[in-house]
Nucleic acid binder design. Structure first.
Length: 381
RNA sequence: GCGAUAGUAGCUCAAUCGGCAGAGCGCCGCACUGUGGAUGCGGUGGUUGAGGGUUCAAGUCCCUUCUAUCGCC
């Protein structure tokens, strides 16, 4: 049985302040203060859907140098129920992660995982993907659940539409703003910071309309939603360029659901501070190792059967220091759960350490060179 | 030794009256971006145990033979 940590870190007197420490071009290095410690940016947040980062233990996450972890409101509401988490002392104690936690609003999952019954200006009625039961989320309900869960950063309930359906994007922009106002009004806890989400798809005028509305609430941080949902890469970069101009410089920017090592570099290059993504752990479960500079290794592939090399000879993670590709392939082939753990550690290390290196380069004033080399190396592959 | 039953893809099995030899799994590979260890997509795969016969046509009917399982002297 896992014992939750007992010590309670002293809350920063400046909780939810963001110190912008350095800039290099549009790239930024900063520190976001939360009641559970500081988040040094740029940062990559591993995703722990149901109060766990899947096959990775908190000790392993800590060894990786992770600070912020994302948990999912939709999943925790359905199972075990936010009341259970609340009763057991809140998310930090429940999942034994004493550092900063961010919860999603449930908006995206309602659209991507459940069966939607109806969506209107008031909220969304949907059927659970677990048992088919009917539920309803509203902006107020999402805040109530997230307050019961108790993460440091909580997200406004939003609508994430198809990026190329302009009519759908336009109504999602206005609905997301209206829902943010209601979520803010429903908020009662002062030890959680609410981030607003900018929508607008790939349309400049809609991104601007959304950003103006959302930043008007003077929130402690802002998220860019509706990207990495099927649009082309150059379009994502263009939207991020717009966002850098539209979002206040003195607040953290969070690019939701992204991404690959290349996405992180391209995001930081355009002023993004926070990332989260399921890719490193999902690919780990699907036998794929992310390589730092482009490329992936599907370790299930036959040629690795007798390969004595580590996944990445230049990687310093515990998996690469310890195990051969041959052994990892054997674990996968034998159906051993350990393969998901070892690959998750490698994939998370790739993104967490890349974020840390980018931070250092920004502080040193060498980030533009770092990014140029990184993108050149990727192009050479 | 005699008898019964069964041999079809790597595995488990389909294939109507004799009418283009198939499926699932595995294997090989691809995808995966605000997470279900999920899922989706594509590919490889056969001397139908062997040999002969009947027939326009045989996995299917006939003969011989080999192998396996069960039963009986």
């Amino acid at each position: 049985m896992i014992q939750p940590r007992q010590e309670n870190p002293t809350p920063s007197p400046n909780s939810f302040e963001f110190d912008l420490e350095a800039r290099d071009g549009r790239a930024r290095a900063g520190t976001f203060h939360t009641p559970h410690g500081d988040i040094e940016t740029p940062v990559f947040a591993p995703v722990g859907t149901a109060a766990t980062v899947k096959a990775v233990t908190p000790d392993q996450l800590e060894a990786l140098g992770a600070s912020l972890v994302l948990a999912n409101t939709y999943h925790l509401y359905l199972r075990p129920g936010e009341d259970v988490v609340d009763e057991l002392g809140g998310l930090h104690r429940f999942m034994a992660w004493d550092r900063p936690i961010l919860t999603d609003s449930g908006g995206f999952q309602v659209f991507s995982l459940s069966n939607i019954n109806s969506i209107d200006d008031d909220g969304v009625t949907f059927k659970s993907h677990v048992d088919g039961s009917t539920h309803r989320f509203t902006p107020e309900k999402s805040i109530r659940i997230q307050e019961a869960l108790g993460a440091d950063i909580i997200m406004a309930f939003d609508e994430c539409p198809e990026p190329y359906d302009r009519g759908g994007v336009e109504s999602a922009v206005d609905r997301t703003s209206a829902w943010l106002a209601r979520g803010l009004a429903a908020k009662t806890r002062s030890d959680q910071s609410l981030f607003g989400i900018v929508q607008g798809g790939v349309h400049a005028d809609l991104r601007e309309r959304s950003a103006r509305a959302v930043t008007g609430f003077g929130l402690p941080g802002y998220a860019v939603g509706g990207l990495a949902v099927g649009e082309k890469k150059p379009e994502m970069h263009t939207v991020l360029d717009w966002m850098d101009d539209l979002l206040p410089a003195d607040k953290p920017r969070y690019l939701m659901g992204v991404g690959t090592p290349q996405d992180l570099v391209n995001g930081v290059l355009r002023g993004v501070d926070i990332f989260d993504c399921v890719l490193p752990t999902r690919m780990a479960r699907n036998h794929t190792a992310m390589l730092r500079s482009g490329g992936r290794l599907n370790l299930k592939n036959a040629p690795f059967a007798r390969d004595p090399a580590p996944i990445d000879p230049d990687c310093g993670c515990s998996t690469c220091r310890t195990f051969t590709r041959s052994y990892l392939r054997h674990l996968i082939n034998a159906g051993e759960m350990l393969s998901a753990t070892l690959l998750s550690i490698h994939n998370l290390h790739t993104l967490v350490s890349l974020s840390r290196e980018m931070r250092r380069a920004i502080l040193d004033g060498t980030f533009e060179e770092f990014a140029r080399d990184f993108i050149a190396a990727e192009a050479a592959i």
